[in-house]
């Protein structure tokens, strides 16, 4: 009884909040998906948009390619963020949180402007081009790394590194340094200690960092339209188009709902996986 009351107290406000300001609004939105057009009445409802979605190869293809981009982005980001968090925790000293915060500050500058600045740096007339031109390595200025699918991934990684470091940082921080010392005292090599002790203990951080990057990247639309070039659009651009210029809220809703379904499958799988991992770690 006591436990039940604690759960209720802890969960009530977040649940009501989500119910009121997310589930309810989204349900209103969902009702659009069964309308003929954005402005037509709900009755008679239609499933035509769902059918159209499933029978339009372009949509599914973009969904798959966006999932791939998001996945690659998440993996690269974690690979780059983990050493950062590791260094800060074990060698960062007293200032470690400040050092991490320092890397997050650039996010307070408008994203659009930061990308614009990168375009200046990497553009035809930018620093790198001028340098290459003066070395005679190229004979005509051209944009480097910009306007392609890889540019989208690079830019997303750039954005997410400090954020992905946050959950890893806070899991690593609770690892008892004595565990690591004990492992080393027992003669384990640093690599073995890392693989056997540090890495398993930081799994929850890794998983949440993965979500942190993967989920929002899946629905990303700003980055592809800024640096994606003529072929770089992602699924999120489709959704955005349906809502704005396309005036097709029903289709936009169907597409968002598909994203939700995918993510819920993912979270369910991961939840199960993480619980098992934790048990094996304890055992």
């Amino acid at each position: 009884m006591e436990k039940k009351r604690r759960v209720i107290t802890l969960l009530s406000i977040p649940s009501i909040w989500l119910l009121l300001f997310f589930v309810l609004p989204f349900t209103i939105m969902l009702l659009f998906s069964i309308r003929e057009t954005t402005f037509s009445p709900i009755f008679p409802p239609t499933l035509s948009h769902y059918i159209e979605f499933l029978t339009t190869p372009v949509y599914l293809r973009l969904l798959l390619s966006s999932a791939w981009i998001a996945f690659v982005t998440a993996v690269i980001t974690i690979l780059l963020a983990y050493p950062l968090a590791y260094y800060l925790i074990f060698h960062g000293g007293k200032h470690r949180l400040a050092l991490l915060s320092f890397l997050i500050l650039p996010a307070w500058t408008s994203y659009l402007l930061r990308v614009l600045a990168w375009k200046v740096i990497l553009g035809s007339n930018g620093i790198i081009n001028t340098f290459l031109l003066s070395l005679g390595l190229i004979d005509e200025g051209m944009p480097i790394f910009l306007y392609s699918q890889s540019a989208v991934i690079i830019t997303l990684v750039y954005v997410w590194i400090p954020y992905a470091a946050l959950p890893i940082f806070s899991t690593l921080e609770r690892i008892d340094i004595k565990l690591i010392e004990a492992s080393q005292d027992l003669g384990a090599s640093p690599l073995r200690t890392f693989l056997r002790v540090t890495l398993p203990l930081s799994t929850p951080g890794l998983v949440s960092a993965f979500f942190f990057v993967f989920i929002p990247s899946l629905g990303e639309w700003v980055t592809p339209s800024l640096v994606g070039g003529a072929d770089g659009i992602m699924y999120g651009n489709l959704v955005q188009t349906q809502f704005l210029r396309g005036l097709n809220w029903p289709m936009g809703t169907v597409m968002s709902t598909v994203l939700l379904l995918i993510v819920s499958v993912f979270t369910m799988l991961f939840n199960r996986h993480v619980t098992m991992k934790e048990m094996s770690a304890l055992a």
Partner: peptide, 8 residues
Amino acid sequence: IVIPYLVL
């Protein structure tokens, strides 16, 4: 976080 913020 998965719903494009515009839709939300």
